[in-house]
């Protein structure tokens, strides 16, 4: 809904904008407000083990975070010639399902595991990433300015993860079925990087529209309590967005 409003606002600005004289030099800076999409798909596994019936039960939850809406708010300031600095904050939130598989020991016999599988839905993934960039402002002619940037990113990742898998079974226990999965949210921070380009088109004095393409990346060990190995998830990805520019 917010994205729709932004798009409508941008369209209104475009429709009502009055052409102005082209500037021969890049603007001093800009504030950008963008809405778009994070196109990357992230998947990672969460292996867990537990002791059941005198043996080790193994479970694996595979999370797949599909593309989804992303928002970005940024400021770029030219400080010396075409070089400047920028600060941006991007957010990404998505609820997806995860598939759970398990190998559960038989209560009567060693080395006779039963397999289970199932899905658990509504696992929320949220990223709030802060980017500090060095920027190069490149006049592209007319009212268009491009800013190429790169720099470190502080990722703050929140992921709802499976903590316990329950299953159902009954005599003669030769099969078992996935029941439910208990979940909890884990939050981790990690430093990574980002790079991208922002293209601004000035529509009127102090106002324009722009497009942003940013690729950010890091790997975060979510540190799930019951996990038997690293639960490492990529964070960030390729975001493409567009929106309003306040130019100064």
């Amino acid at each position: 809904m917010r994205a729709s409003i932004l798009v409508l606002a941008c369209a209104a600005v475009i429709a009502t904008a009055t052409p102005v004289r082209a500037q021969s030099s890049s603007p001093r800076g800009f504030v950008s407000i963008n809405a778009g999409v994070q196109t990357s798909t992230i998947s990672f596994d969460e292996p867990t083990t537990m002791q059941i019936y005198q043996e080790t039960a193994t479970f694996n939850t595979t999370y797949k975070i599909n593309s989804g809406k992303a928002y970005d708010l940024g400021v770029g300031v030219r400080i010396a010639g075409p070089i400047g600095v920028g600060v941006g904050v991007s957010s990404f939130t998505k609820s997806d399902s995860a598939s759970v598989t398990g190998s559960i020991p038989h209560p009567f016999f060693y080395k006779t595991p039963r397999t289970i599988s199932g899905d658990t839905a509504g696992l929320e993934r949220a990223e709030m990433n802060t980017h500090l960039d060095v920027m190069a402002f490149i006049p592209a002619g007319g009212r268009v300015t491009a800013a190429v940037f790169a720099g470190p990113t502080w990722f703050s990742v929140s992921q709802e993860v499976v903590t316990t898998v329950s299953f159902t079974e009954s005599y003669p226990f030769d099969t078992a079925a996935f029941g439910t999965a208990a979940t909890t949210k884990v939050k981790k921070t990690k430093v990574g990087y980002n790079a991208g380009v922002d293209v601004t088109v000035r529509l009127a004095k102090g106002v324009g529209i722009g497009a942003l393409i940013r690729y950010s990346r890091t790997s975060v060990d979510l540190g799930v309590a019951n996990a038997s190995g690293n639960t490492t998830s990529d964070a960030g990805g390729l975001q493409a967005s567009g929106g309003l520019r306040l130019i100064f």
């Binding site: 038989h106 209560p107 016999f109 060693y110």
Partner: peptide
């Protein structure tokens, strides 16, 4: 552990 020294589960 059974009579023949074999491991098994017991309910």
């Amino acid at each position: 552990v059974g009579v023949l020294n074999d491991d098994k589960k017991i309910s």
